[in-house]
Design a protein around this nucleic acid. Structure first.
Lengths: 187, 187
DNA sequence: ACCTGAACACCGTTCAAGT
DNA sequence: ACCTGAACACCGTTCAAGT
C-alpha cells in the first residue's frame, strides 16, 4: 500500500511521458500515487532534490563503450547521452537544473572525461571535450524537447529545424578538436 | 506616471541584480513598478514572452569583432556572449528557456555562424561551431550563476570549481575543431 | 495607451499528529 | 516507515471596467 522512493520517481516519469514538465507538480505526483502532497516530503526534502534524483536516474545507463577508436568512443558516449534524454520528455531541462543545483551527480561528464583520457588526451583537453559534449547535448535537447511539447500542445507549428543534424554537426566539431589535440600531443 | 515596455524590462533586470530569478515574479515586478500584476499583461501576453524579450535585450550587444584571425574572432564572440550573460544574474537560464521557446531571436548564434563562414568554414561546419559555442556558453553559465546565487543565499559553500577555466578548455576544443576543419577544406 | 478590482485555479512547503 | 489534516504564503492569468 505504501510508496517507496522508487515509486515516486516512476510516477514522475509517467507524468513526463503522458504530459509534461509543467504538469510535474508535487500535488499531481501525490494524487497519482494516491497520497496527499505532503506525504512526498517523507521521501525528499523538497522538489528540487526529487528532480535531481530523477535526473540521475535518467542518465544512469550511460556507460562508456569498450570498442572503437578514442574519437569513436567519445562520439558514442555523446549519442548514448542524447538517446537517454530523448527517451524521457523534458528530461534535458531537468538534468540542466539538477547539474546546476549541485544536488545530482555529473557522472556522464566523468564518463566522457575518462573516455577522453584513456584515448590519450591530456587532462585539460579531456575536461574541455567532456564539458563541450555535455553542454551541447543537454542544451540542444532542451530546445528539441521544448519544441516537441509545444507542437504536441498545438501552440506552435513545426520548427523546420533538424535537431539530429544540428547535434551531429556540433559533435563533429568537438570530435575534430579532440582529434587535433591528440595529434598535437603524440607528435 | 505610466510605464513603458522598456520600464518593465529595466525593473526585471533590477530584480535579477538585487535578488534572483526566483524573485522575478509578475507580482513582484508589478509592485516594483507601482502597478497591479495584471497591468503587465498590457505590455506582454504572458510571462514567457516577457522573459524572451529580456533575453534578447541581454544579448543585444554581442557583435562580431572585425579584427583577428577566424579562430580569434570565434573565440572573441564566445567571450563576449559569456560576458553579457555574467553581467546579469541568472540570465543564462532565461536565455536557455527563451531560445527553447522560440519566442526570442537567436541572433548571437547567427553572429557566430557568420563569423565562422567569413573565416572560410563551409556552411555545415560553421553551424556546428556556432551551436557548440552557444550551448557551451549558455550551459556552463547556468551552472556558474546558479552556484553564485546558492552561495549568496548561504545554502551552499564554495563549489571549488573554476568556471573560467572550464569555459576556456571547452572553447579551446571547439576552436581547435574549427581550425582543423578549415585546414581540411583549404587543403 | 495604460491601469484597477475582483476573482479563478492553482503552487511548494510546514507542523503536529496518526498508524 | 509512511501518511493525513489543516494551514500558510504564495503564484500566473483573465475579464470587465475605468481614465
Amino acid at each position: 500500500m505504501s510508496n517507496s522512493r522508487a515509486d515516486v520517481l516512476a510516477a514522475a516519469r509517467a507524468i513526463l511521458a503522458e504530459h509534461s514538465l509543467a504538469d510535474l507538480t508535487m500535488r499531481r505526483l501525490a494524487t497519482d500515487l494516491g497520497v496527499r502532497p505532503n506525504a512526498l516530503y517523507w521521501h525528499f526534502p523538497n522538489k528540487q532534490t526529487m528532480l535531481a534524483a530523477l535526473a540521475d536516474d535518467i542518465l544512469a545507463g550511460v556507460e562508456p563503450s569498450r570498442k572503437g577508436s578514442a574519437p569513436e568512443r567519445i562520439r558514442s558516449a555523446a549519442v548514448a547521452m542524447r538517446a537517454a534524454l530523448l527517451d524521457v520528455p523534458d528530461s534535458a531541462e531537468i538534468v540542466s537544473s539538477a547539474w546546476a543545483s549541485g544536488l545530482s551527480t555529473r557522472s556522464t561528464l566523468e564518463t566522457i572525461v575518462t573516455v577522453a583520457r584513456d584515448g590519450g588526451l591530456d587532462a585539460q583537453t579531456a575536461d574541455g571535450v567532456a564539458t563541450a559534449v555535455c553542454q551541447l547535448t543537454i542544451g540542444l535537447t532542451i530546445e528539441e524537447q521544448t519544441r516537441t511539447q509545444m507542437e504536441r500542445l498545438g501552440v506552435t507549428g513545426p520548427s523546420g529545424r533538424d535537431f539530429d543534424s544540428e547535434f551531429a554537426r556540433g559533435l563533429d566539431v568537438i570530435v575534430a578538436g579532440a582529434r587535433a589535440q591528440t595529434a598535437v600531443s603524440t607528435d
